[in-house]
Nucleic acid binder design. Structure first.
Length: 498
RNA sequence: GCGGUCGUCGUCCAGCCUGGUCCAGGACGUCAGCCCUCCAAGCUGAGAACACGGGUUCAAAUCCCGUCGACCGCACCA
């Protein structure tokens, strides 16, 4: 299958940003202050509702579906956690700055380019300095003299208590899951495979955050860590459900092939049934979340692209006006994490699988929430001839239904208000009297509200109202007494209403 | 972090070069009122901005410097 889709004209980043700022999806954090650093954004009222809906969908369609347990860990974590995880050692980049043109470059890459040798990433600053000198490496850009090698740590350090104890803001939420695993596995009477999930904030001190939600210094991750027995990766009950489900796998430079799970495993495109199952799960989730699958792919990472702990890695990537964006890292972390935590903390992390003692391996689905939200917005925003409409899945709509009096005469507002009062107890509802009815429908369209209910003069005669649907703009008349039931069935059964 | 471009109402844009006519103008949106029978109609009115800090000058949105931010490119993105 080739990538030619374009079922909809691609919306641009600028248009999504305009929507975000005008309608209150997200805005720069601390924007009234000039010293606000980049890479921090606040979700507004509409954006928060949207994010909450997205997370709820994840809980329902992924966690509850597979009986995963969810935890909520602390964001500040002990230093030794990151000694064990490898972040203190590996989360540095050795960088060197040219004294002449001020370009900053990675020292290890410079040396290996010059010498053709593989240079370890984890030498001391001093070793890098000598290597640079020995090989007479100069700035590749201007030929100028290079300065001293320094290291840039991507983790935020936090001083805790009066003693200013060194701790760190977690750079990935999964560390909470790893350190909590032994206790919760026991408490929950867990059996392998045992999936633990978490939604929370992570922090990375990016050098150059850009493009609003795409690269943040403080961001939400929704992570699932599945603890499993590596000897049983093809012994997966649930595989039956997805045997014929087509995974969208990237083949070659820019083609994507939809390969049924079974075939993908047979051909070695995906290493095991276990992995194939979870890749299906995440693809199905994004489809339900409103990502256009024609612009969705799994990309298997090459050896030199993978994170230091990953044995096998697939990225979920989604095509946007900014290019292909990585939304989920699906990594086989092997026993790296539990082994390291068990070594550094000296606690036993093995568990029983049947009557065999095993140190579980971990497969993770590490989702970037903020980026996902951006991509859904971009894929959902549609410019029609007469209007901009955000065609969000009903389940993700920040506001579910709008109620309007057609005009402000003859008690129509009172009648509309009664309906509003009933609906708002159960649904996110908005009531709007301002402007022409068409204008009010447009306001709904722009934040993706699927349903509008309009009270008119006929309502006074026969107790019926107009029900208007966002995407088709079609209208139908329903009885006032049926409104609540209709809205319920729309959201709970996703029935066609009009 | 480097280089280039840039930063004016909620949004988009004019004004800047050639300082004073700008307590900043327009459009769209918002709010109030009028109008009132289904997709951004019309009329009247209102509120709303020179990113921040310093400098030059009799006078700064306008010129200069710095900081922060945005966009593009490089680098970075375990």
């Amino acid at each position: 299958m080739c990538f030619e889709n374009a079922a909809r004209p691609m919306m641009s980043y600028d248009e999504v940003m305009r929507l975000a700022l005008e309608r209150g999806f997200y805005v720069p954090s601390c924007e009234i202050y000039a010293d606000a650093p980049a890479g921090f954004w606040d979700y507004g009222p509409v954006g928060t509702a949207f994010k909450n809906k997205f997370v709820e969908l994840w809980r329902r369609e992924v966690l509850r579906r597979d009986e995963m347990v969810e935890i909520d860990g602390s964001q500040i974590m002990a230093k030794d956690v990151f000694v064990a995880s490898g972040h203190l050692e590996n989360f540095f980049d050795p960088i060197v700055t040219c004294t002449k043109c001020k370009t900053t470059i990675r020292a290890d890459r410079l040396i290996s380019e010059k010498t053709g040798k593989n240079i370890p990433e984890r030498l001391s600053d001093h070793d890098y300095d000598s290597l640079l000198k020995e090989n007479n490496v100069r700035c590749p850009k201007c030929g100028g003299e290079l300065g001293q090698v320094s290291k840039f740590n991507m983790m935020f350090k936090v001083g805790v208590g009066a003693a200013n104890l060194d701790t760190y803001l977690r750079p990935e939420t999964c560390q909470s899951i790893f350190v909590d695993f032994p206790r919760f596995f026991k408490i929950m009477r867990g059996k392998l495979p045992f999936p633990m999930a978490q939604l929370g904030k992570s922090f990375r001190n990016e050098i150059a955050p850009r493009q609003s939600l795409m690269r943040l210094r403080e961001f939400y991750q929704a992570e699932i860590e599945i603890f499993f027995n590596p000897d049983k990766v093809n012994d997966v009950e649930e595989f039956e459900e997805v045997r014929n489900y087509p995974l969208r796998l990237m083949r070659g430079e820019d083609t994507v092939e939809a390969v049924p799970c079974e075939k993908a495993v047979e051909q070695g495109l995906v290493p095991s049934r276990f992995v194939a199952y979870y890749l299906s799960l995440i693809q199905q989730f994004y489809e339900k979340a409103g990502i256009d699958l024609n612009r969705f792919r799994f990309r298997r990472l090459a050896e030199d692209e993978k994170a230091f702990y990953a044995k096998v890695a697939f990225d979920v990537e989604v095509q946007t006006s900014l290019g292909w964006i990585e939304l989920v890292a699906c990594n086989d972390r092997s026993d790296y994490d539990l082994k390291r935590h068990s070594e550094v903390s000296k606690s036993d992390m093995t568990v029983l699988d049947g009557d065999v003692k095993v140190l579980p391996n971990v497969f993770e689905l590490s989702m970037g929430v903020d980026r996902s939200l951006y991509c859904i917005l971009e894929h959902s925003l549609v410019k029609e001839e007469k209007r901009d409409v955000l065609k969000l899945k009903p389940q993700l709509a920040p506001v579910q239904v709008g109620v309007f009096p057609l005009v402000t005469k003859e008690g129509l507002p009172d009648k509309a208000n009664q309906i509003y009062s009933t609906l708002k107890k159960e649904f996110q509802t908005t009531y709007d009297v301002s402007g022409s009815i068409g204008r009010r429908y447009r306001r709904l369209d722009e934040i993706g509200t699927p349903l509008g209910i309009t009270v008119d003069f006929d309502t006074l005669k026969d107790d019926t109202v107009t029900l208007r649907e966002r995407d088709s703009m079609q209208q139908s008349r329903i009885k006032v007494s049926e409104v609540l039931q209709k809205v319920r069935s729309y959201y709970y059964q996703e029935a066609q209403l009009v």
